[in-house]
C-alpha cells in the first residue's frame, strides 16, 4: 500500500494524504461488505428460485410437502442459511439499513418461504414468523433484517407461484387444488369448481362461524390475497412504485386462474370423467430431483 506513494512523488507532497489514507481504508471495508452482500443476495435468490421450482411439483395442499421435495430442497435451504450467516455481521447496528442490495435475496426468499408455508398449511405466513425465520438462520452474529417491504414484495411474487401451481394442477388433475376437508365433504369433488369458488366469498362472510365446513381452494385464497394487497397503502417512494408495478402483475395472475377455471368449468363437462392430460410429462422432473 505504501509503495504506491513512492511511485508518484507528487502525491507524497499532498498534506491531505494521511486523511485520504484513512478514507481509503474505510471505503475499502465498505465496498467489501457491499460486495459480500451483493453476492449473498444473488446466491439466496438463485437458491430460492430452485426451492420454488421444486415446490411447483407438489400437487397436494394443506399437508407436509412430499419427501422428494424435502430431500431435493435441503441443499438450497442450507445455502441460504449459510449466506445469511456469512453476511450477518455486515448488517448489524448502524449498518442494518446500509446495504439495500440484500433486498433482492430477501424478497426471493420470502417468496419461497411463503409458498412452502402455504403448500403445507394453506395459510399466509405472518411477517413476524418470516422475519424470525430469517433471524434464526442468520446465526450468532445477529439477525439479518427482513423488512416489511421485503415481506410485502415477496408476497406479491408468491401470487405468481400460486397461479402457476393452480394452472398446473388444473392441467394435470383437472381441478383446482383445495385444502383437505375436515368433515367428509365429498361434495367438492363432484361440484363444478367454479361454482364453488364463486360462492366462497359470499358463503364465508355470512357463515364465518363454520369456516372448516368447506375446504378453501387456491382461487379463494388468491382472491383473499388480492384483496389484502390491493387495500394496502404503500405510500410514495421506491417501495410505492415497486408495489404498484407488482400489483398489476398480481392482478393478472389472479385473472389467469379465474380464466383457466372458467375454461375448465365450461369445457370440463365435455371431457370424459377421470380424463387426465399428460401426467407423464410432469413426472419427469420429479424423478430427476431424487
Amino acid at each position: 500500500m505504501k509503495e504506491e506513494k513512492s511511485d508518484k512523488p507528487e502525491q507524497a507532497a499532498s498534506p491531505f494524504m494521511a486523511m485520504f489514507e484513512g478514507f481509503r481504508a474505510e471505503l475499502d471495508e465498505h465496498h467489501d461488505r457491499r460486495e459480500r452482500i451483493i453476492k449473498a443476495s444473488r446466491d439466496i435468490t438463485a437458491a430460492s428460485k430452485k426451492i420454488i421450482f421444486t415446490l411447483q411439483r407438489v400437487r397436494a395442499l394443506g399437508q407436509s410437502v412430499p419427501p422428494f421435495v424435502v430431500k431435493g430442497n435441503a441443499q438450497y435451504w442450507e445455502i441460504i442459511e449459510k449466506q445469511y450467516q456469512h453476511i450477518a455481521a455486515d448488517v448489524q447496528g448502524l449498518n442494518a439499513f446500509r446495504y439495500p442490495q440484500i433486498t433482492g435475496g430477501n424478497q426471493e426468499f420470502m417468496e419461497a418461504l411463503s409458498f412452502h408455508h402455504y403448500l403445507e398449511t394453506q395459510t399466509l405466513i405472518s411477517y413476524d414468523d418470516a422475519k424470525n425465520r430469517v433471524a434464526s438462520m442468520s446465526g450468532s452474529a445477529g439477525a439479518v433484517l427482513l423488512t416489511p417491504e421485503d415481506y410485502i414484495l415477496g408476497i406479491f411474487d408468491m401470487v405468481g407461484e400460486l397461479m402457476r401451481f393452480s394452472i398446473t394442477a388444473m392441467a394435470t388433475n383437472g381441478k383446482l387444488p383445495a385444502g383437505k376437508p375436515r368433515k367428509e365433504a365429498k361434495a367438492t369433488h363432484e361440484d363444478p369448481e367454479g361454482e364453488d369458488a364463486d360462492k366462497m366469498d359470499v358463503d364465508e362472510e355470512t357463515s364465518a362461524s363454520t369456516p372448516a365446513e368447506k375446504p378453501r381452494n387456491v382461487l379463494s385464497d388468491l382472491r383473499a390475497l388480492r384483496l389484502q394487497l390491493e387495500i394496502f397503502e404503500a405510500g410514495g417512494g421506491k417501495f410505492g412504485a415497486d408495489v404498484r408495478k407488482k400489483a398489476d402483475v398480481m392482478r393478472e395472475c389472479v385473472d389467469k386462474v379465474e380464466k383457466a377455471l372458467y375454461q375448465l368449468t365450461v369445457r370440463g363437462t365435455e371431457r370424459p370423467k377421470g380424463w387426465v392430460p399428460d401426467v407423464r410429462e410432469e413426472r419427469r422432473p420429479e424423478v430427476e430431483s431424487y
Partner: peptide, 26 residues
C-alpha cells in the same frame, strides 16, 4: 378481514401501521 382463513388480518394491519409510521417520519 379477508373472507377466508387464508390470511390473519392482523398481518396486514401490522404492516400498514409500520409503513404509515415511516411515511410520518418522512
Amino acid at each position: 378481514s379477508a373472507p377466508s382463513g387464508m390470511i390473519d388480518p392482523a398481518i396486514f394491519e401490522g404492516l400498514q401501521t409500520k409503513v404509515d409510521e415511516d411515511t410520518a417520519v418522512r
